[in-house]
């Protein structure tokens, strides 16, 4: 199920503005890849281009190649809707559908795929996904209550459950813990460890300890210079990145001597 991603010569634009230039990287299947770097350097932009969410913004476009298991993501024959069904995403702020119950939130993606499902089948998916997101024990008695009634950390895990319910190949996470308290953060980090046996995970984070804790590989993004587009400075195994990075800028950023 999990797939690897190859990115080559990726340039990302907002209208005429070149936001990110020349990204080349390989994201391994069944591993966690973290993107770190200062604000505004294009980490989230690159992440969003991996499931074609980038182009949702008017005028936004992408040049270059992204291959998922040998299939080009930006091939004209590829429907972006189909891409997003296979590459799930979790956002910075938890965003369960406010009018839906916990149960319906988990099934939202499956219902979009418009398969008619039996009640038993639905129940099974809900339980499996909520267990997968470590939320089942907390919500199993109130599945029909609104998802908005949960705490922030629970809502974020609900969003993860919703994303994994459709069994995607890749799970993208855009600073999934930045709106959460340390306990919820730790719950989600544990979850990421468990999920990586099944999914390819890419996570953007501002928290370098978090990158060090959860990821196998880390990519460091930075602006080339003030006013210049962002770029991938270095990508390496996380252990190496945090002990002995190849690039001086990486070391400066990681050790806090940045700028």
């Amino acid at each position: 199920m999990a797939k690897s991603i190859d990115v080559s010569d990726l340039d990302i634009y907002y209208g005429d503005f070149l936001a990110v230039q020349g990204v080349n990287m390989t994201i391994k299947a069944r591993s966690v890849t973290a993107f770190i770097g200062p604000s505004g350097c294009g980490k989230s932009t690159v992440l969003r281009s991996l499931n074609r969410m980038h182009e949702v913004i008017p005028g936004a476009r992408v040049e270059g190649k992204i291959m998922v298991d040998g299939q080009s993501l930006y091939d004209p024959s590829i429907d972006p809707v189909a891409v997003r069904r296979q590459i799930g995403m979790v956002f910075q702020r938890p965003n369960p559908f406010p009018t839906m119950s916990i149960y319906d939130n988990v099934l939202a993606g499956n219902r979009l795929n418009s398969k008619r499902m039996k009640k038993a089948e639905q129940d099974a998916i809900v339980e499996k996904s909520l267990r997968g997101a470590n939320l089942w024990n907390e919500v199993k008695d109130r599945l029909n209550k609104p998802g908005m009634g949960l705490s922030g950390g629970q809502q974020q895990r609900l969003c993860i459950a919703r994303a994994i319910a459709v069994e995607p190949q890749v799970l993208l996470m855009d600073e999934p813990c930045s709106a959460l308290d340390p306990i919820s953060t730790s719950a989600i980090e544990d979850l990421i460890h468990e999920l990586k046996s099944e999914f390819t995970i890419v996570i953007v984070t501002h928290n370098m300890q978090q990158a060090a804790r959860v990821s196998d590989d880390t990519g460091f993004f930075n602006l080339k210079a003030a006013g210049q587009p962002g770029q991938l400075v270095e990508m390496n195994a996380t252990k190496k990145m945090f002990s002995n990075p190849d690039n001086e800028a990486t070391e400066a950023y990681i050790s806090g001597r940045f700028g």
């Binding site: 499931n51 997003r84 956002f91 993606g109 994303a163």
Partner: peptide
């Protein structure tokens, strides 16, 4: 946020409207 939640699940534009816009 809600629109993107629907789109990221693979909603078409009309499905996104049904999931995020109309309830809101």
């Amino acid at each position: 946020l809600h629109e993107e939640a629907a789109l990221a699940l693979g909603a078409t534009r009309w499905e996104m409207i049904r999931y995020a816009v109309f309830p809101y």
